Computed example of a mutant assay.
Amino acid sequence: MNAASLLHLLQFASPALPIGGYSYSQGLEAAIEEGLVTDADSARAWIVCYLDEVVARWDAPVLWRLMSAFAAHDAGTIAQWGGCFLASRDTAELRAESVQMGYSLSRLIAELGVADTRALGEDVTLPLAFACAVDGLAIPHEEALLAMVFAWVENQVLVCVKSVPLGQVAGQRLLLSLRPEIERAVELARRLPDDELSNWAPGLSMLSMRHEVQHGRLYRS
C-alpha cells in the first residue's frame, strides 16, 4: 500500500470525518439503559456479538461487494447492493443513521472532488458513499474493509467510555483486545457467498425501537 493511499484511508476512516458518526451508538445506548452492558467485560461481549452476527455477516460483506462493483464500473450491482443495504435497516433510527451519514459523506467527497457522486441517486447509504470514495481515491479494498470495521469497533468503544462509563485506559485496553476479532470478521466478510449473508439480530432491532422512545438519550441511535 503506497503512502498516498494510506493517507487517504486514514483521512476517510477517521472519527474526525465530519459525517456525524460520533452521534450514533447503533443500539448500544439502549443496551446500557437496559443493563445489558455495565462494565468492560459486558461491553466486550456486546461488541464481539454484534461484530460477528451483523458486521461480519452483512455490513462488511455488502461493503466488499460495493467496492468491487465500483472498481468494475458495474452500475447494476452497485444499485442492487446499495438497495439491499438500505432495505436491511429495519428500524427508523438505523435507517436514518445510514442515510444521514451516507448523504454527508457523498456531499463531502463531491465537494472535495474525490469522485463523481451524481450516479449514486437518492438515499445514499454510508457503505455506498464509502465505496465510492475508496474507488475515487484508489484505496486497496482489503485495507479499506479493515479500516471500516475498525472504525465501527472504535466508535462502539468510545460510546462505552462515555456512557457505561469506562475509563480512557480501560477503553484503549478493550480496543486493543479486539484485534483478533476484527481480523476474523474481515476475513469472514471477504469469503462469505451471497446466500450466506445475514443481519438477523431481532434483539438488536428491539433495542433500537426502544431507543426511539428512550428519555435522556445522548445518541441518535
Rank of each mutant, 00 (worst) to 15 (best):
R173G: 15
L174P: 06
A79D: 10
A185Q: 00
A3Y: 08
R57D: 00
A45D: 12
L204E: 02
V149T: 05
P193F: 04
W200P: 02
E154F: 14
A69C: 05
I139C: 05
H141T: 09
H215R: 14
A13H: 04
Y219L: 01
Q80T: 05
L86H: 09
V157P: 09
M209A: 15
T38V: 15
D52C: 09
H215I: 04
L192C: 05
D39I: 07
Q172D: 15
L105W: 05
N155Q: 14
A71S: 14
C160D: 02
A151S: 13
R184C: 08
V161K: 13
P202S: 03
E154I: 06
V153I: 10
T117W: 09
T38G: 15
R184Y: 11
P127Y: 10
Y24S: 08
R190P: 03
A131C: 11
W58I: 01
R190M: 14
A3K: 14
P180I: 00
A189I: 01
I47V: 08
A201S: 11
H211P: 03
L188T: 05
L128Y: 10
V169G: 11
A56P: 03
V55N: 07
A31N: 10
A75M: 07
P61F: 07
G21Y: 02
S5F: 09
L10V: 06
A92R: 13
L188S: 04
L28Q: 07
Q214H: 13
M148W: 15
M209I: 12
P140G: 01
D41R: 12
V114F: 13
V99H: 08
A119Q: 14
L128I: 08
L120P: 07
I32V: 09
L51D: 00
L63N: 00
R191Y: 13
A115Q: 09
R191N: 11
E142Y: 13
Q156N: 09
Q26I: 10
A189T: 00
A189E: 01
S205V: 10
I109A: 04
P18W: 10
E183P: 06
